[in-house]
Structures are given as structure tokens and as C-alpha cells.
Design a protein around this nucleic acid. Structure first.
Lengths: 351, 351
DNA sequence: ATGAAAGCGCTAACAT
DNA sequence: ATGTTAGCGCTTTCAT
């Protein structure tokens, strides 16, 4: 089963073993003829050990290749210096940026992060949450898979939610102002002279998508455009979905001449269809996405979109989480909303 | 400092606390008036407990909201059900695919994965390796940051290397046949009728890049093309680097009419430059990349490239790692080489 | 300045 | 079938 596509499966060396002879503080205490309490103190720079002893211990520790056991420490100290990051799919370019933000911030203070991909699946999410708690992570950052059933996250563990309202659990949240973003996107389309603007969303159960849709409707109203159900559609957050839906909408007797897509990935599918059919973008057809994901700025794509500070969101989420971890009793629940920004590129006429 | 771009920073609820009253097997034993060993046995489905007791325990555990403590278990059982995944940058689309492969495979057997981004930095890598060992991960999968100084990874921990030879440490490795890939790419360019084929690599210290270059040279020789140093260049694995280098090469008095790029990200920069300058691809200029990253197949890009089974590599790396973890004494070091595949798209004339 | 002892939550002998 | 004990590697009182 391995062997599919395997060219070489060779060079087998026998009996190479891993040496699992981990040295402990007891070992180095014995070697030095002192108590292991002293070793512990020396290793941790605690007061009450003579300079001389400290040096002896440090030297011996290095010599013996001592590696502190974070597991044992965690057992007594009640924290693990680890957090969990639960996202839908690291393969969607939106998430890696957030993940980097979280991880860079974490690393700076010696924290580790467990990466968990739910693959947009609620059961996977629950399962991961359970595991993370068993691993006694100090906190969790989560971008919920869906928001159809209320996300009641009242775990024993500090938690901050990204792009999701907090139901019941009183968790801190951080999100971009999705409604405002939706408004900006739609308004831009209107001001660019497009007349029939469709909305093509992803999962209808997505909170952020819903907010973007509200912004869309608000803009239409403000500019006296009708809200036409026939050119409003939901699918999934996939390129294929965008492609399939725009194909359908464009066959309507009264087709749209522009679309605000639920995110960049969907917008990409729309662009793909336009290209396949030789539809001129932005002259005859306008599209704006959401997220300002990496590929959106490619010269070949140049997608007009709504930017959100992804890396910063990850960083901020971690910082807030740390605050909550540090002040477990007497914490302050925060609801943070960041400003989105319209990025005009080549898939709309501009003004 | 938080406040940049922050719209709302509000809704503050005071004194919401995390209830850190974790229930242990002792608690449920006390409640039930039995020994905690019995509880442990019941919870783990071990023999020697009456059906009746098992049910009582399970019920009470659920009722009290018991969460097993994986830390404590790890301390006695000597394994943590956790591995580390060390890569350069999750933001480079090549890695998420691998990460998914690893994580999906891990999840299937209840393993967690620590994600570590070295950001192409050797010091970060060392630091992460240290931390991972302290956390007593059961194993490590690593795609080394660089290969200039030999990667001597003889840790106490089982380890498999991706895209890197193993120096000294006798670790199993898994890689695509980079040389063959380089050959295929270059040969394709030759057969497509391009006459002066440049090579634009990433980090000169990269092992995989070096192999690709060897394949490039081999193909040139086989078809009696000269190997011309003036159109061979290295930079970094970034789009910008590709852009800058091709700009320079194209100003040569004898410029190339095609290029084999060290990876797709670099190729993208080259394409970018061609577009900026109105150079016709593939008619007047051919480019092939390496990796077949997600964006390469976008209709707007359609990059000819060398595919490698990224997800599968991740999956395989995990499976091999698990084998090594399970057979620590008497392990078999494996060197696996996978077959790359030429994917012809629109940035070369084809045959 | 150093050591002895207890204990974190659990599993695994070793009884009974 | 159940309980007792020891111990994983460490930190933290409490002595000395």
C-alpha cells in the first residue's frame, strides 16, 4: 500500500535503535552526590543554591545531555505551555496567515501550538476539543467550523473565538467587521456602475458570511437597489462552488453583471467561469471577494477584495488568550471587532 | 498597542472565571466508595472489573464531567501520543498540503501534532527541536530549513526527514526524486523547442534544489545543450526573488528563452515579470516550476510544473514515523524516493 | 545552602 | 473482582 509511486524502498539498516535513556535530575544528583532538590533549584535558577553548586550542576547537566521533562513539570505546575489552534483547513490560504500569527506570538514566549484541522466538520471539532482538554492545553483559539447550532463552548479551558459570536460560554471573540466589509464591497460595485449585483456565499451556516450578506443588503438599500432573491445564493467555501453557482446565475433571463463573493476562494471560481466563457472582467462583469488571501494579489488575478488583517488577528487572538490564561479568576471578556479595508484591483472597473 | 485598527474594544464582563476544578479518578472513586485503581481499570476497559462496577463508574464519570489527564498518563506510560511537525513556513502553499497529510493520518490513530514554523531559520529549528524533546513528543517529522551544514539529527526521538538526506543520524527519509524531476522539466523545455534554458533556484543550500539542478544539467548534456553559468542563478524561495533574477537574466546580451524554476513560487515571480513586460508566454518564453502547488493549476496561471504527491508524502512520513516509534529497538532505516510527474500546462509550448 | 518528604494524576505490579 | 503500593520526573513546602 505504501508502494504506489514508490521508486526506492531500500537501504535498510538493521538494529539501529533509539536510545531512550533519558537522564533525569535524580541521575545528575546521584552523580554529584547531592539531593535532587538542589539540582532542581540550580537548573531553574531558584535562590538558595551556592554559585559553586549551580555551576557544577549546569555543567554536569550539559555533559549528561539532560533534557527537562515538560510532562512531569506540567503535572505539578498545572500548566503545559501549550495551546490548541482549531481551524477548518490549513489548505485554505486564509488560515495559514492566522496560524502564523498565532504561532509566532506563541513562540516568542515559549508556547507550543497544537494544530487542528476540523475540515469544516463539527464532529471533528468536538473530538479535537476533547483531546485538547485531555492534553491539558492552557488555552484554545478556535475558528468554529459552523455556526448553525449555537457554539456553546463552556470548557474548563480559556478560549478565544475567531470569526464567530460567542454563545453562552462568555468567551472573548475577535473578528473583522464583516457587515461593514460587505457594505464596502457592495458599495464599490455600485459606484463602479454595475447594475445587478449578485451575492454568492459559502456555507449558509457561517456567521461571518451572514454578516457580510447583511452588509450587502444594507448597501443595496442605501443606494436604492432592489434586493433580488434570484441572484442571492449559497454553496460552500470552495472554488468549485463559486464556479457552479455563477454558471447558474448567468443563465437567468435577467442575469447579474457583478457579484460580491463570500470569500476570495469563491471569487476565484467565479473568475474561472468568466474566463472560460470569455466574459470580460471588469468591463462587462465585476467581482469582489473577501479576505484578501495571498493569491488575490497575483498579477494574473488582481482580485478586488476586502482585506482583513489575518496575521494580526492570529497574533491578537493569542495575546488575548494569554491574558485570560494569566488572569483566570477575574477575567474580562472582550469582544473585538477589527476594521476591514477595501482593496481595489482589476476585477472591478474602479471609479 | 492592541488598539491599531481596533474598532470596538468593549463589552467587558467582570469576574467571569474559568472553573479549574478538574475532577480526577480519585474524586470519582471517593464518590463511589471504591478504590481509584478500580476506577482506572473501568475507565480503560481493562479486565478484572465487574460489569456492574464498570457501568457505575462510567456513569459517574460522565456525570462529574471527568476528563482524563493525558499529562499524568504520559508521565507513567512514557509516550504522549504527540508528534512534532517542523516545516519552514505554513504560508508557503507547499507545506499545508504536507501538513494535512500528516495531521489527517495522525488524527486517525489519536495522535496530536505540534506545528512548528522555522521560517527557514536554522536557529529556530534547533530551538523547536529542543522544545519538542522537552515535551517528550513520540516522534518528529521535519523538513529541514537548510542543508548547508550537515543536519545531524541524532536526537533521542524517532525522526523522519522530508526532502533532505540524512547525515549521521541514520534517520529514515522520504523525498521525491528531485533529480529526475529536474531532468523531466528541462527535457520538456528542450523538446518544446526552447533554445536557451536558464535555471533559477531558491536557496543554494537547499538539498532538493541542488538535486533539481543536477537533473537540469543532465538533461542539457543528454541533448547536447551547453551548460551556461551565466544563466544559472540562485536566490531564495520567494516570488520576489524569481522576479528579480529573471529581470537580470533577460537583460543579458544573450538572454534565455526559457527557465526551469526551483519551485512554483519562484516560477510565479518569473511569470509576473513576463506579464509586466508583455513577454509572450509560452510563445516566446517558456517556464516550468516544481511542486505543483495549488495556485499552479489556476486557470489564470496554468503553470507547467513537476508534481509531487505532497499530501501523500505527509501521510507516508507519519506512517513511517509510527513504525519507528513502535519498533524502537530493532528499527529499519528507510530511504524512500517517490516518482515526480511532469504536468504540462500553458506556460510551455507543449510538444 | 541543602535535604527530606509529599504530592501532581495516573498506571502497573503485587497482593488479597 | 477489588484494593494497596510504588513510582513516573518534577516542584514545593517544611525542616535543618
Amino acid at each position: 500500500m505504501y508502494l504506489k509511486n514508490v521508486k526506492t524502498f531500500a537501504i535498510i539498516i538493521e538494529k539501529e535503535n533509539w536510545g531512550m535513556i533519558m537522564v533525569t535530575i535524580k541521575d545528575i544528583a546521584k552523580k554529584l552526590g547531592i539531593s535532587y532538590t538542589t539540582v532542581s533549584r540550580a537548573l531553574n535558577g531558584k535562590p538558595g543554591v551556592s554559585q559553586e553548586t549551580v555551576e557544577k550542576v549546569l555543567k554536569e547537566a550539559r555533559k549528561m545531555g539532560y533534557q527537562p521533562n515538560a510532562i512531569a513539570r506540567g503535572l505539578v505546575k498545572k500548566y503545559t505551555n501549550t495551546i490548541g489552534l482549531v481551524i477548518a483547513d490549513i489548505t485554505n490560504p486564509y488560515y495559514p496567515s492566522i496560524a502564523r500569527g498565532v504561532e509566532d506570538a506563541a513562540r516568542k514566549i515559549g508556547y507550543n501550538v497544537f494544530l487542528c484541522n476540523t475540515n469544516y466538520n463539527k464532529e471533528n471539532e468536538q473530538s479535537y476539543l476533547k483531546t485538547l482538554q485531555e492534553q491539558r492545553v492552557d488555552g484554545i483559539i478556535i475558528n468554529p467550523a459552523k455556526d448553525d447550532s449555537p457554539n456553546v463552548y463552556d470548557l474548563q479551558t480559556p478560549m478565544v473565538l475567531i470569526n464567530s459570536p460567542s454563545y453562552g460560554g462568555n468567551n472573548s471573540t475577535i473578528e473583522v467587521d464583516n457587515k461593514r466589509g460587505g457594505f464596502l464591497a457592495t458599495e464599490h460595485l455600485i459606484k463602479s456602475g454595475y447594475k445587478r449585483i449578485a451575492f454568492i456565499g459559502g456555507d449558509i451556516a457561517s456567521y461571518s458570511n451572514g454578516r457580510r450578506f447583511e452588509g450587502y443588503k444594507e448597501a443595496l438599500k442605501e443606494y436604492n437597489y432592489p434586493v433580488d432573491e434570484s441572484i442571492i445564493a449559497y454553496g460552500s467555501f470552495k472554488t468549485k462552488s463559486g464556479y457552479a453557482i455563477i454558471e447558474r446565475l448567468l443563465k437567468l433571463e435577467n442575469p447579474p453583471d457583478a457579484v460580491f463573493a463570500g470569500n476570495d476562494v469563491i471569487a476565484l471560481g467565479i473568475l474561472h467561469y468568466a474566463q472560460d466563457k470569455g466574459i470580460k472582467v471588469p468591463e462587462d462583469f465585476g467581482v469582489v471577494g473577501f479576505d484578501n488571501v495571498g493569491f488575490s494579489e497575483l498579477p494574473q488575478i488582481q482580485l478586488t477584495t476586502i482585506d482583513q488583517p489575518k496575521y494580526y488577528i492570529g497574533k491578537l487572538a493569542f495575546e488575548i488568550l494569554m491574558e485570560e490564561i494569566r488572569n483566570k479568576e477575574e477575567r474580562f471578556v472582550k469582544k473585538i471587532v477589527l476594521e476591514p479595508e477595501l482593496v481595489i484591483r482589476k476585477t472591478t472597473r474602479g471609479k
